[in-house]
């Protein structure tokens, strides 16, 4: 499943994932954003892995925020934007 979201004033966030037994699996977030250190993107993927597929946008956002250390810098990408791409992947809402 594939979802995309262009963050207004930011960058494109893409989510590719599968849903097995109503849970998110094989989650991979990609896009033309900037994140330092670059390993923090793996942390975001891991935070989403295994969450119920009916997790709300707000709860997905909180799960990502909680997983990121204070020293991680995001530029052109936000937890809410990632959550939007993930919801679109699950809901099949990307045009």
């Amino acid at each position: 499943m594939h979802g995309e979201y262009k963050i207004p004033g930011g960058k494109l966030v893409v989510a590719d994932l599968n849903v097995i037994d109503a849970r998110l699996t094989d989650v991979r977030v990609s896009g033309d954003f900037f994140i330092e250190p670059d390993s923090a993107l793996d942390v975001i993927d891991a935070a989403l892995q295994g969450l119920p597929a009916d997790t709300s946008h707000e709860a997905l956002t909180l799960a990502i925020e909680a997983a990121l250390d204070a020293e991680v810098t995001l530029y052109g990408i936000t937890p809410g934007g990632v959550a939007m791409a993930v919801r679109r992947a699950i809901d099949g809402a990307t045009p």
Partner: peptide
């Protein structure tokens, strides 16, 4: 180049 990227 997808349509979503060009949306704004």
């Amino acid at each position: 180049i997808g349509r979503e990227k060009l949306s704004d």
